[in-house]
């Protein structure tokens, strides 16, 4: 009995850490897709860039993990503003197909560039002393790195929710997602709002990529490899919300970990069947608006 319980706690713990990372990476995608209806399949590129920057700063320049993370987040957020203004903004009115293919093109270019610069092998992240080993939480011990992931992601999520529920920016954002034309009519500059949201979402993706570099390995195929997971989170959670993707991400993380542990043969199979069932039941996702 004790063993089963311990295994259960372990699965839940790892699943939660995994889900939190997926959420931090994908939440920006959910909001931008809900706001502008832009099918940005290249969202994972920002996470990948964040991962590469973090690992390179740490391994190559000996910069501390935390500082490297913050740098990656800021650099990617700034770069995403340039991309958004130069390229993405021209395609807001384009067809879904055009957006999908444009972003697949971005993925191709980014992976080729990453392979060129860093080679085909996954990047190894050497964790700082303070994050390796185990931490004792009273009733049992947990890996420090994953505990840290859960805590940091928790803080980010709390900040995000506060920002959206309690600030003026958040209120404008919610208004624009609900009804963009109406929001524009009462004087909200949705273009600027969108650029800012895009930057925050990309920065968070970069943060998630760097934070989770030990779980989702940083390699050239990253953006394509994990694209399906990000898309599951967004489509199951529902577009334009921050709560939906959280539930979806934790569900996905825990289910995926459970499947890998209990039925490793048919893990992916089960996830996709579950997703098909869920989307047939609620085509707009768990918390999506019809």
């Amino acid at each position: 009995m004790d063993q089963i319980l311990s295994a259960l706690v372990s699965i839940l713990f790892h699943g939660l850490a995994y889900g939190m990372i997926l959420y931090v990476i994908s939440v920006g995608l959910s909001v931008t897709m809900g706001l502008m209806g832009f099918a940005n399949l290249a969202h994972g590129v920002f996470a990948m860039a964040g991962g590469y920057i973090t690992v390179t700063l740490m391994n190559g320049f000996g910069i501390h993990f935390f500082l490297a993370l913050v740098t990656a987040c800021i650099v990617v957020a700034l770069a995403s503003v340039v991309l958004e203004r130069l390229l993405y903004s021209r395609l807001y009115t384009a067809s879904e197909l055009d957006q999908v293919l444009f972003t697949i093109g971005i993925i191709f270019m980014a992976s080729a560039a990453a392979r060129y610069a860093w080679g085909p092998l996954p990047q190894r992240m050497i964790l700082p002393e303070s994050l390796s080993g185990q931490v004792d939480l009273g009733f049992r011990t947990f890996p420090t790195y994953r505990t840290f992931l859960i805590v940091v992601s928790g803080v980010i999520i709390a900040a995000l929710w506060l920002g959206i529920e309690r600030t003026r920016f958040g209120a404008q954002l919610r208004a624009a997602v609900d009804n963009r034309r109406m929001a524009e009519a009462i004087g909200i500059n949705t273009r600027r709002l969108f650029t800012a949201t895009f930057a925050v979402g990309s920065g968070l993706a970069a943060l998630g990529g760097g934070l989770g570099a030990d779980i989702l390995a940083i390699e050239p195929a990253y953006a394509l490899e994990y694209l399906v997971y990000f898309l599951i989170v967004v489509s199951v959670g529902g577009l334009g919300t921050v709560k939906g993707p959280f539930v979806a991400a934790v569900l996905l993380g825990v289910t995926d970990t459970t499947c890998k542990y209990l039925i490793p043969e048919f893990g992916a199979f089960f996830i996709f069947l579950a997703m098909i069932g869920l989307l047939l039941w609620r085509p707009t996702g768990l918390f999506g608006r019809a």
Partner: peptide, 14 residues
């Protein structure tokens, strides 16, 4: 080579 394919794709869409 995938870089050039990607670039071609982006240019086509744009």
């Amino acid at each position: 080579w995938t870089f050039w394919i990607g670039l071609m794709l982006v240019l086509t869409v744009m």
